[in-house]
Amino acid sequence: MRIFIAVILLLSLPAHAAEYAVVVSSNSTVQAMEIAKIKDIFLKKRSFEGELRIVPVNPIGNDPARTQFESEVLNMSREEINRYWVNNHFQGISPPTTQASLQSIKRFIETVDGAIGYLPIDMVDASLRIVHEY
């Protein structure tokens, strides 16, 4: 219930220049990352950052964070993205794992080594590290 309320509150916030941030665990060795690398990671063109296996995670559906991420970071429409993953599916490459909520994404990033996701900036706390803002 608290999570639901938090989401509502986040959605009700007025948009601004850097509302979302690509984050990793604060324990991660990954530091700041340019947008092109982030795009490669979420399109599974890049799986490692050094020795670390990178695990991208998306929120499901039409979450605003995802929509914003696809349009600003990936710079691709949903149709392009779907077509991209259909093509890659036959090559054994599947889209990033998903979580149903931003809270889950935060828990996922905190828990899984090499996990990388994107959240509203206001959800980022000490357990996370921002590698990119958008």
Binding site: S94, T98, A100, S101, S104, R107, T111
Partner: peptide, 15 residues
Amino acid sequence: LDVMNDIITEDLDQR
């Protein structure tokens, strides 16, 4: 299924 990854997040979303 991919959703089984929610084990990691303790199925917070009850998926």
